[in-house]
Structure formats: structure tokens, C-alpha cells
Amino acid sequence: MVDPATVLVPTLGRPREDDALAYALETFPNANVRLLAIVTPLDARMSEGSVLERADERTAEARERAARLLAVVDESAGDRVEIDSTEGQPGTVVPKYATDHDVDHVVMYGHDTRSSGLVARFLGRGVATTVIERTSQPVTILQ
């Protein structure tokens, strides 16, 4: 496998996303890393809260969350990491972003790849499963 030039690490404000960023930085030491702060639409099933907030405020908060994540993982990696943000459903946004920005590999934390049966029917498909199915680039899901 050829080392990727660009690795995408999407963030949704979930626990253990620092593990995904640390994994990307350690596993691909020569790659540029794009830390993508995703803001889900307020009407989405994954909405960050029930209080309506202005979209620009939510986007700024997502970018700050990504910057804090980077600081927790490794401040020296800052020259390799670019923080970007977007709004949308992660299962749609990640594949499109990866294609539009010439990303070679996606690394994310996801606990949903093993969900099945009754729980999956009630909760719907998980983000990680959707990203895997819709992304043409290799995807690494950390459990």
C-alpha cells in the first residue's frame, strides 16, 4: 500500500475522536491531515442540541472543537494538520469532501459498524457504515 498524501479525519464532537486523529498522525507520518469539523443540520437525527443556534456560531464552535482536539493530541503536528468545517449529514459530507479535496484515505472513530438486528432497525444506519459504503477512498474505522 502506498502511503497517502492526504488523510481526512472527520469530527462530529463525539468521544474518542482524538484517537482517530492520533492514529492518522502516527500511522501516516508523511501525510497532510485534514481535520474536518462537521456541523449536522439542526433538524437532523444527530442534532447537537435542541436549542436553535445560528449556523455561523455552530460552525465557529465546531472549528474551535477541532482545534482543541488537535491541541490535545499533539501540538507539534500543527504544521501537518489543516482544520476545515462544513455543514451537512456526515454520511454525505465525508465522501463528497474526500473526492472534492483529493483525499487519499479517511480515518474516523465509529462504534456502529457492528450494529445489527433490532437496534439497527430502530436507530437507522450508523455514520461509519454509511461513510464506508459511499466513499471510494480507503476508510479506517477505529473501534
Rank of each mutant, 00 (worst) to 15 (best):
V2R: 15
V7F: 12
V9T: 04
P10K: 12
T11Q: 09
T11A: 11
G13R: 12
G13Q: 11
R14K: 13
P15N: 06
D19C: 08
F28A: 11
F28W: 12
P29R: 10
P29N: 02
N32K: 15
L36G: 06
L36F: 09
A37C: 13
P41E: 00
S47Q: 14
E48C: 06
S50D: 08
V51Y: 10
L52W: 15
L52H: 14
L52A: 12
A55W: 15
A55S: 13
T59W: 08
T59Y: 11
E61M: 13
A62K: 10
R63C: 11
E64T: 10
A67H: 05
A67Y: 09
A67D: 07
R68D: 08
L69V: 01
A71H: 01
A71Y: 00
A71C: 01
V72Q: 04
V73M: 01
D74F: 09
E75K: 13
A77Y: 07
T86N: 09
E87F: 11
G88Y: 11
G88M: 10
T92G: 06
P95F: 01
P95Q: 05
K96P: 03
Y97S: 04
A98N: 06
A98E: 02
H101N: 15
D102N: 07
D102C: 05
D102L: 04
V103M: 04
Y109R: 04
H111Q: 04
D112Y: 03
R114N: 04
R114Q: 07
S115D: 03
R121A: 02
F122R: 09
F122P: 02
G124D: 01
G126E: 00
G126F: 03
V127P: 02
V131G: 00
V131R: 02
E133Y: 01
T135K: 00
P138L: 07
V139F: 04
